[in-house]
């Protein structure tokens, strides 16, 4: 089984990289972009029977920094 973990900055945490991407999109003439936030996608190849709680524990321990980031888990 696989899990996809999406790690993003918490709302309210400034994202200098997202802002730079936004700037670049503006420069390319893409109008109507209200904001850009950059995150990470981590794909895990897991033993069958691994639970969402197990993956959440991995997020808490390493994959995300709870001070600045949140995460979303999708099991497939």
């Amino acid at each position: 089984m696989k899990a996809r973990v999406t790690v993003t900055l918490k709302p309210g945490v400034l994202d200098p990289q997202g802002r730079a991407i936004h700037h670049a999109l503006d420069g390319l003439g893409f109008a109507g972009v209200a904001g850009v936030r950059q995150g990470k996608l981590i794909e895990l190849d897991l033993a069958d029977g691994t639970t969402e709680a197990d993956v959440a524990a991995m997020c808490q321990a390493l994959l995300a920094n709870p001070v600045i980031e949140t995460y979303r888990i999708e099991l497939a």
Binding site: V13, L14, P16, Q17, A20, N65, V67, I68
Partner: peptide
């Protein structure tokens, strides 16, 4: 030290990149 929880907060990418 921040990642290990010995100090609070986090150090992010410089504002000017």
């Amino acid at each position: 030290l921040t990642e290990a929880g010995l100090l609070p907060g986090a150090l992010m990418r410089n504002a000017g990149l």
